[in-house]
């Protein structure tokens, strides 16, 4: 009680501290808001343009508040817009991306989990070296492997096919998924594995019954990472596929580069948004698990 009474009385020092705190906060939020606006403005412009009429865009310029509202551009971008002679919109490319991204994500994540399991719990002579070599892949830019992939896909007969891209993304992604999973599994106590071995469980049973049930936090991280990474990837798509086989990122380039007609900014905007939607949704729904999975260990 005495404390409260003391605090209630006017204390100039405390008041000054409060004021200082307020201005500090004000400054921090002002800066944050400014940067948020800078980052979000392009997105906003694209969203607006996808809803404006092409004629209005032509009249009022690219950056302007919408004075018309139509969803036509979205429908066109999705299904009917013509790119280099075919008038199917982005639909096909969108599904190409999906059929490339989902299997590549699932396979690379599972392989990463298994690699991580072996490299953390079944170490063997040279396993650390192997891990370090795999880490190299994390720092290797994709273009370095363009030539080898061209050669390999040619040999396998997988050029200009989604399967080829799946193969590329699985292999290119293994470094990351292995790194994530291995570092997560290292925090699982070795005693669990020993106990399970005494209990008669072998390599696979331990993986399925003990490691995998502990894995959701890190599997969510790898899935989000792989999904957004593979979906947004564009270099391999452009180089190894063309036309109807292209993933949406590559197709967007074709769309914006098509110089025959006047630029349909409304359709382009809608197409860009369609291409960006899946990663955005993943971010919105999975973002918090991503952070949580990266920061927490296996055993709470």
């Amino acid at each position: 009680m005495a404390d409260i009474a003391l605090n209630a009385r006017h204390d100039p020092e405390a008041a000054a501290a409060t004021r200082r705190y307020f201005w500090n906060r004000f400054f921090v939020y002002a800066v944050l808001t400014l940067f948020a606006v800078i980052y979000l403005a392009p997105l906003l412009v694209v969203v607006f343009n996808s809803l404006r009429e092409q004629s209005e865009i032509a009249r009022n310029g690219l950056i302007s508040l919408p004075r018309s509202f139509r969803l036509d551009a979205w429908a066109q971008a999705w299904g009917t817009y013509c790119v280099s002679g075919t008038c199917e919109g982005m639909k096909r490319n969108f599904f190409n991306s999906l059929w490339m991204t989902i299997p590549a994500t699932v396979i690379s994540t599972l392989l990463g989990a298994m690699n991580g399991y072996v490299l953390s719990k079944w170490r063997f002579k040279g396993s650390e070296t192997l891990f370090n070599l795999m880490l190299l892949g994390v720092f290797m830019p994709g273009q370095i492997s363009l030539m080898p992939w061209a050669f390999l896909l040619g040999k396998l007969g997988l050029t200009n096919s989604t399967y080829g891209l799946v193969l590329i993304h699985v292999v290119q992604g293994i470094s990351f998924t292995t790194l994530f999973c291995r570092n997560f599994y290292v925090s699982i106590p070795d005693d669990l594995i020993k106990a399970a071995r005494i209990d008669g469980a072998g390599f696979w049973r331990i993986f399925r019954k003990i490691i995998l049930p502990l894995s959701p936090p890190i599997l969510i991280v790898t899935v989000i990472w792989q999904f957004t990474g593979i979906w947004n990837e564009y270099l391999f798509g452009v180089v190894f596929t063309s036309g109807q086989q292209q993933p949406i990122t590559a197709a967007l380039v074709a769309l914006t580069a098509g110089g025959t007609t006047a630029r349909a900014y409304d359709v382009m905007s809608a197409a860009v948004l369609i291409g960006a939607l899946p990663p955005l949704l993943i971010y919105l729904f999975g973002g918090k698990y991503f952070v949580r999975g990266l920061t927490q260990g296996a055993i709470k």
Partner: peptide
């Protein structure tokens, strides 16, 4: 280990 007919209790308990 599984064929040695032993059981072990760990310091960390090692419960799954």
């Amino acid at each position: 280990p599984k064929d040695r007919d032993i059981a072990m209790v760990f310091q960390s308990y090692a419960l799954y």
